[in-house]
């Protein structure tokens, strides 16, 4: 069990690094997907080893996958809109909402 949790923790750290350092909106979204996957690995691991009486962890991971798909759809639509507006999707362009 430790190995699976350690894998998920390292994957989460990689995703976090991507979210912090990317200057590209699509890159940030991809790193977010990595973090979602790390969380899913954790849920399924705990489901198998700690709470095997019911499949609640797997159900939760399933809902996370669905919500992540919805998030990706809306996020990429926003990316397209930003691209159309500023001709670029770097995060430097999107400072208009900064005060």
């Amino acid at each position: 069990m430790f190995y699976y949790l350690a894998l998920a923790a390292i994957l989460f750290a990689i995703g976090m690094f991507g979210v912090i350092t990317r200057r590209n909106t699509i890159g940030i979204l991809m790193s977010l997907e990595l973090m979602f996957n790390a969380a899913n690995i954790n849920f399924v691991t705990f489901n198998k080893y700690v709470a095997a009486e019911a499949l609640v962890g797997q159900m939760f991971a399933l809902f996370i996958i669905v919500v992540a798909a919805a998030e990706a759809v809306v996020g990429l639509a926003i990316v397209l809109l930003i691209y159309r507006r500023w001709r670029g999707i770097g995060t430097d362009n999107i400072s208009i909402m900064k005060w």
């Binding site: 399924v44 991971a61 399933l62």
Partner: peptide, 19 residues
């Protein structure tokens, strides 16, 4: 593949289909 190792075959299929 990790999901398959953890006895979550349906989740693995959903992962491949959706993600």
């Amino acid at each position: 593949g990790i999901f398959v190792l953890l006895n979550a075959e349906f989740l693995a299929a959903a992962q491949v289909l959706i993600y």
